[in-house]
């Protein structure tokens, strides 16, 4: 296990895309400390900002307020990263495998365009969670993101596959332009949820303000939701039995586009 402890509070953003199990594995402490990073607009080494303990391995622990450290675990394919504190923008972006646990909040674009693996955020997430970068054709494409707090705007936007779960509230345009996949929000949704939904599923447990381009279908108990919710229990989330056995109002849309998407709203009757 490699432990990186932040030496002092950062005054500028630190681009640290090297903090990836794939890069650390098999390297000595000195080699890890010498890995290149960018602090503000200056080239620097990882060891300038972090105390490194343990040779490079596929299990990395980060300690300190890393709210200004960007690109942690970007593109990772294996291993495990645990962050005790906040993490900056682009956490786990484009990752393909492995597990990230953050015991704090994360910045914008966490898990954006990821293609596999799991991110578990025990605090809040910023905007663009699991989304697509501007100009990209698709966002998250496989994998799982769990946010135990709230998420910002455009969570799951242009998502292609995978599962995003937000235990708290989600901002505006949640699931906008989703191609497929599942976005589940246990709290409240912001405005224009599911705008431009092509396919895919948006699940919510509070009645949202729906766009007029969604049509009510029926109230029923879809079996696939039982599987997802039971799997979330295994992930450590507290899921009420009523959510598993209960009924959901199904709205199909967005009829501005293909109209093969759905918003499932837990029916509290």
């Amino acid at each position: 296990m490699t432990v990186l402890t932040l030496k002092s509070q950062l005054q500028a953003p630190l681009e640290a895309g090297v903090i990836v199990p794939d890069r650390f594995a098999g390297n000595s402490v000195a080699a890890v400390a010498g890995m290149p990073v960018t602090y503000g607009n200056e080239a620097a080494c990882l060891g300038d900002f972090f105390k490194v303990a343990g040779a490079g391995s596929t299990e990395i622990v980060l300690e300190g307020d890393l709210g200004r450290v960007k690109n942690i675990a970007a593109g990772m394919t294996r291993g495990k990263i645990t962050v005790h504190g906040d993490a900056g923008m682009h956490l786990g972006s484009e990752m393909r495998g492995g597990v990230i646990n953050v015991y704090g909040n994360v910045g914008d674009w966490a898990g954006s365009e990821m293609k596999g693996g799991k991110i578990h955020i025990h605090g809040n997430a910023g905007h663009g969670l699991g989304g697509a970068y501007r100009g990209s054709r698709r966002g998250m494409n496989r994998g799982m993101i769990i946010v135990e707090g709230n998420a910002g705007n455009e969570a799951g936007a242009v998502m292609r596959r995978g599962l995003i779960v937000v235990a708290g509230n989600a901002g505006d345009f949640a699931g906008a332009f989703m191609i497929a996949g599942t976005l589940m929000v246990f709290g409240k949704l912001g405005i224009r949820a599911g705008a431009g939904l092509l396919r895919g599923t948006l699940v919510t447990f509070n009645q949202p303000e729906l766009l007029p381009t969604f049509c009510y279908d029926c109230s029923y108990s879809p079996s696939f939701l039982k599987l997802i919710l039971r799997d979330l229990r295994l992930q450590g989330l507290s899921i009420s039995e009523e959510y598993i056995t209960g009924c959901y109002r199904r709205y199909s849309g967005d009829f501005n586009r293909l109209g093969k998407g759905e918003i499932l709203v837990y029916d509290q009757r």
Partner: peptide
């Protein structure tokens, strides 16, 4: 279809 815990299901 939905992929749940690595398995694909058809609805």
């Amino acid at each position: 279809s939905k992929v749940i815990a690595g398995c694909r299901y058809w609805r």
